[in-house]
Computed example of a mutant assay.
Amino acid sequence: MRRQSGLPYNGGLPARRGGGNLRIPDDIAVLGVDNDETICRLSAPNLSSLNQNIEQGGYDVARLIDRIIRDPEAEREDVMVWPTHIVTRQSTDIYANNDPHIAEVLKYIHENISQKISVDDLVSLVPLSRRLLETRFKRSMSTSIYDYIIQVRIEKMTQLLSEGMSVSEAAVELGFSDIKNVSRSFKQLKGITPSEYRQQVIQGKF
C-alpha cells in the first residue's frame, strides 16, 4: 500500500506530523488505487479505492505488442488504463468536516443510505433545530440535506451497477420505490439513464 501524501503509515492510520493520529474517515477520507480486494478488506477501516478498466488495458497492450511484432519500427506508445468508478468502503463513508454535528449527520446518511432517511431522523441526532441544521448543512456541503441524500444514493447506485446488478436490483437494494424517479434523478446527475450507464459499463466505456 502506498503511503498517502508523504505521511508515515501507522497501524492503518497515517500519523499526523507533530504527533497524534488522524481518524479515518472522521478527520480525513482516504482513497486508494487498483482496488486490490485483499488490501482493501484487510485495512482498518476498509479502504475505498479507484477501480480501473484492467481488462481493456490488457487488450490495448496486446494490440500494441502485436503491432510491434509485425513492425519492429512501429511507434511505441503509453497504454493508459482508465478508471471506471470508485468502490466506496468505510475509509470514505463520510467527508472530513470541521463541524462535529454535520459530521455526525454525514456518518448517519452514509451508514443508512439503503434506508429511508428523513430530515427529522437527522435532527434527532444533534442538538440543533431543523432550520439551524439545514442552514449549517448547506453552508458546509453547498447543497441541501435532501439533495445530498439523493447524490449519495445515486453514487451508490453507480457502484452497484458497475458490480453487475441490474437497474431494478440496485433500486431495490437502495430502497427506491419508483424506477422512473430513480432514472430521472440519475440522468440529472450523470447525464445518462441507469440503463445507459450499465450498458456502457458492460462495453468497457466506464
Rank of each mutant, 00 (worst) to 15 (best):
H110M: 02
L42S: 12
V61H: 11
R16W: 06
V87L: 07
L161A: 08
R70Y: 04
I24Q: 03
V87A: 08
D36W: 02
R63M: 11
S124N: 10
T92H: 05
N35C: 01
I202H: 10
Q52S: 06
P45I: 03
W82Y: 10
T193I: 04
D121V: 07
V182Y: 04
N10M: 08
M141N: 11
G12R: 07
G20C: 05
S183D: 11
N46S: 10
F206S: 03
I202S: 08
E75H: 09
N53S: 08
C40A: 14
G58F: 03
W82H: 08
S48K: 07
L106Y: 04
G58V: 08
I24K: 03
D93N: 06
Y148W: 13
G58Y: 09
R131Y: 11
Y108F: 15
I154F: 02
L125K: 13
L64C: 05
E134G: 05
P8H: 07
R2I: 12
R136C: 02
Y59W: 15
L22I: 10
K205R: 13
N112P: 07
T143E: 15
K156N: 14
M141S: 05
S177N: 10
I94Y: 00
Q4Y: 09
E173M: 00
R153G: 08
H101Y: 14
E111K: 15
G204F: 07
V172H: 02
V81T: 05
Q90F: 09
D34I: 02
R2T: 12
N53Y: 01
V167E: 09
Y148M: 05
A96K: 05
N21C: 05
Q203A: 15
S114E: 15
E134F: 00
G164A: 04
A171K: 04
E155V: 00
P83K: 09
K138F: 09
Y197Q: 07
D121R: 11
A29Y: 03
V172L: 00
P83G: 10
D147N: 14
G32K: 03
K180D: 08
P25Q: 05
L161N: 07
S118R: 13
A15S: 13
E55Y: 12
P72I: 12
G191H: 07
A62L: 14
E55R: 14
V201C: 13
K138P: 00
N181I: 05
S142H: 15
R2L: 12
S129G: 11
N181W: 01
V119M: 07
R70D: 14
Y146E: 14
T193G: 12
G191S: 06
V30N: 01
R16G: 00
P100K: 11
I94E: 01
S195I: 09
Q115G: 01
D66S: 11
D66W: 06
S140Q: 08
L106M: 09
G11Q: 06
S124D: 12
F176C: 01
K190S: 09
L31E: 02
L160R: 13
T38W: 06
S168D: 14
A74L: 06
G19P: 09
I94A: 06
L132P: 02
